[in-house]
Simulated scan of single mutants.
Amino acid sequence: MTIPHEVRSYPFEMSERLMLDPLYSELRATESVCRVSLPFGEDGWLVTRFEYARVVLADPRFSRAASVDRDEPRLGRHQHNVGITTMDPPHHTRLRGLAAKALTARRVEELRLKTRETAQRLVEDLVRHDPPVDLVEHFALPFPIAVICELMGVPPEDRGRLRSWAEVILSTTGASPEEVGRQRLAMHDYLTELVARRRREPTDDLLGAMVLARDGEDRLTDDEMVLLAGAILTAGHETIATQIPNFVYVLLTTPRLIDRVRAAPDLLESTVEELMRSVPLTTVLAARYALEDVRLGDVVIRAGDPVVVSLASANMDEEVFCGASEIDPGRKHNPHLGFGHGSHHCIGAQLARMELQVALETLLRRLPGLRLGVEEDALEWKSGMLVRGLRSLPVGW
């Protein structure tokens, strides 16, 4: 006899700021695969443990492409079911492999000096204002869009439009489906023209490298380059723009942590990794659909069932991360899922790491007295977006 599962409303009631609801810890221990109902779409399964999260994200028995024809469980009214994020291997593998030939670790490192210059310029502009100054508006928002546009060769005069397109496209409740569609089309048309220019006039930026990327006789089509460029722009802008103030907030409200990093700058890289693990960015990943029956612990996921993964909960799994609730920049073993896992592991992970390292390095070095500019209870937090974070972060120095 099949025992019916309780269907919980999800997401759970949010704890204050960036804290996770205590129910996640309880579920990891007692019901790590449970039934949930999201605000939109069909009911599905929620995975909260690290072990099962890795299975769902990497096992080919779970499909993203199957979501295209389903009313997938989601937070917003409209489905984000276009582009490379809804592809499965081998098509996804082909596109990712060709893109990786252009977005190399060497290219990212070559951009580090320019990224430092951008960060320093923004901080110098920031300190010309009387504190408190909003770190989000004056640093966190313009910084990643400048870096990504530099990487892709987007002219400076067009960067404001790309930023506004990205913010609307990633909205869950703040924009209508019609508005999201209009902004997505506008960005698509712009990137189509940019790619066409690269065909006519080759450059040494990322889009120029994507034009030249080859695997034997295979290469990216114009449409594929537009899809990839759009994904890099939207995801790369919003996630970094959100995590910079999130990370700074955590540092400024954890004196022992910021003191340790200031005293040992060589811990900066490991601090970024630990903050990627411990700071919850997304509430839930896009659904994967089981292509056949799959057992996860005591639960059998039936073929056709959608599964959503909480990366934030998996990254707090005490069986994997000793002292998971503590932020430890000296953590030796840190296989976090902050950039995802499996075939859809963030293709821009090295770029994101570099940007976050440079941002924190510049802020802590140039502003040694950096502090919150308002009482902590007065801070404003985002709503209606796919990511969790601060709407503004007034700071002083």
Rank of each mutant, 00 (worst) to 15 (best):
L268V: 05
V320N: 12
G304M: 15
D266W: 08
M276N: 04
P265F: 15
R331I: 07
V309N: 10
G304E: 14
V294I: 05
S325K: 04
S313D: 11
L311Q: 14
R262G: 09
N315L: 14
R331H: 09
V299H: 13
T283H: 03
V284R: 04
D305N: 08
M316W: 09
V308A: 04
D266S: 15
D293H: 09
S325W: 01
S325N: 06
L291E: 05
A314I: 15
A286E: 06
Y289P: 04
A263Q: 12
E319V: 11
T282H: 01
V284C: 05
D298M: 09
E273P: 09
R288D: 01
M316Y: 10
E274F: 00
V294N: 05
M316Q: 07
A324R: 06
R302I: 15
V261N: 00
R331F: 08
R288H: 06
P306H: 13
V279E: 00
L268K: 05
R262E: 08
V299Y: 12
V299S: 11
L267Q: 03
R277M: 03
S310L: 13
V284L: 03
S325D: 12
A263Y: 12
D317F: 15
V261A: 03
L296V: 01
A312M: 06
L281Y: 12
A287G: 07
V300F: 09
S270F: 06
E318H: 07
